[in-house]
């Protein structure tokens, strides 16, 4: 079994990226979208989410541990690559590099975001519309959030493409081509959802 460690880790990395990390991100962006319906609506939604039964269990096993594994193993993957887009400027090679760059940016963003909201909540702050409005009041933070959300969403969409290849779902070049289109539509759609929510706080 020891010889299989890398195969197992890679497949687990790919699987956890989709289930549950992607699903959580989509859910998070959808809940954020309550902000477009006004302050009260957002506060009600965020209160509902934080008062879910088994909250700590859900947070640890659906969000924190899978995300931690995906992030740490992902950093290892990103730093064992030797990017060469200047010599091989093919579309997929660019996506390969962007997947690694967006992953690292997303990790930095998520770490900061968790510190600023979830850990702040653990130390007694209240997570509500006003908190986000205060954070995004700072133009630097606004740019940081926009970059962070777009990286996360790109990493998700392109990650779905490589998930389909890594598990042998899309084998033929044609199916991989179509899944490129589908995942890029997902990228655009989720970017719009994410950015609308951000601008609702500004």
């Amino acid at each position: 079994m020891a010889g299989n460690r890398e195969f197992l880790n890679r497949r687990l990395h790919s699987l956890l990226g989709v289930i549950p990390v992607s699903l959580f991100l989509v859910q998070h962006l959808v809940v954020n979208s309550f902000a477009t319906r006004g302050e009260e609506s957002f506060n009600a939604a965020s209160h509902f989410m934080e008062s879910l039964p088994f909250r700590y269990f859900l947070e640890i096993f659906i969000i924190f541990l899978p995300l931690l594994f995906h992030a740490i193993y992902g950093l290892y993957i990103a730093f064992t690559a030797k990017n060469n887009v200047s010599r091989y400027g093919f579309f997929r090679n660019w996506m390969f590099m962007l997947q690694r760059v967006s992953g690292v940016i997303t990790l930095i963003f998520v770490a900061w975001h968790v510190w600023e909201t979830r850990l702040a909540a653990a130390f007694g702050a209240e997570v509500n519309f006003q908190m986000m409005a205060n954070i995004l009041d700072n133009p630097f933070m606004l740019v940081f959030y926009i970059v962070g959300v777009i990286s996360a969403v790109f990493h998700l969409a392109n990650g779905l493409w490589s998930f389909a290849v890594s598990w042998g779902i899309t084998i033929s070049p044609r199916s991989q081509q179509i899944s490129t289109y589908v995942t890029m539509v997902i990228f655009v759609a989720l970017s719009i959802i994410g950015l609308r929510a951000i601008f609702a706080f500004v």
């Binding site: 890398e6 195969f7 880790n9 993957i77 690559a81 090679n93 490589s162 890594s166």
Partner: peptide, 19 residues
């Protein structure tokens, strides 16, 4: 190829098929 250094290390840059 399921062992260390095997198939799973592919990162789908697809430079190989282009080259």
């Amino acid at each position: 190829i399921m062992g260390d250094g095997g198939l799973a290390n592919c990162g789908n840059s697809q430079n190989c098929v282009q080259s």
